[in-house]
Computed example of a mutant assay.
Amino acid sequence: MINQKKLEMAFKRYCRNFIDGIKLEDVQKEYNENLNESIDIVESNETDMDHVLLINLDTISSYYLSRWKNDVLINKGDSVENLKTIQKVVFYKCMGQDLYKERYPDMILEYSFKKVVIALIHFTMFGWEKEEKILFNFLLTKLGTKFMDANDWNKHLWFLLELYLQFRDETISGTNQELSRNLKKNLNELGMKNGLIPEDLEVYEEVLGKWRTVNVQEVITMISEMSLHHSNLAAEVGQLGEFGDYKYAFYPYEILFLLHVRKKQGLPNPDHYDDFLMNTPEAKMSIQDPETYPEWDPMLRMIDEFYRKNYPEYIPNRYGELFQ
Rank of each mutant, 00 (worst) to 15 (best):
E321D: 15
M95C: 14
M278Q: 10
K142W: 07
Y64W: 07
P252D: 02
K84N: 07
Y64R: 01
Q177V: 11
S38C: 08
G244Q: 09
L140G: 02
T292I: 12
R318C: 02
L208S: 01
G209F: 07
P294L: 04
S112Q: 06
E291M: 08
K76M: 10
F147M: 02
K93P: 09
M125V: 14
K263Q: 07
L201Y: 06
F113T: 02
Q265T: 09
P281S: 00
W128G: 10
Q217D: 15
S79Y: 07
T47G: 02
F136W: 11
E102Q: 13
K115C: 05
K12F: 10
F113A: 00
K115Y: 06
E25I: 03
D58F: 09
D71T: 13
E225D: 12
K84P: 02
Q324P: 02
M49C: 14
T145G: 11
V219Q: 07
L99A: 03
N194D: 05
W296M: 09
P294F: 03
L187Y: 05
L179W: 12
N317V: 05
D98G: 04
I315C: 10
S180W: 09
E199D: 11
Q166N: 11
F147I: 03
F138L: 10
M107S: 14
N176P: 05
Y319N: 09
E282F: 13
M302H: 01
G96L: 06
N34W: 12
K101I: 10
G127V: 10
M278T: 02
A119M: 10
V27T: 15
L300G: 15
S224M: 00
L99C: 04
L57S: 06
F159M: 03
M107F: 13
I55F: 03
F323S: 01
G127Q: 10
P316T: 08
I118L: 15
K155E: 14
C15G: 04
Q97E: 13
Y251E: 12
V216I: 15
M226P: 09
N75F: 09
N151W: 11
T145I: 04
S180N: 04
E242N: 05
E46H: 02
G209M: 04
E37F: 11
L57Q: 06
T221E: 15
N317C: 04
I39Q: 08
E131D: 01
F11R: 01
H156S: 12
M95E: 11
Q166R: 05
K23G: 08
V261W: 10
N17A: 09
F18S: 04
N32K: 15
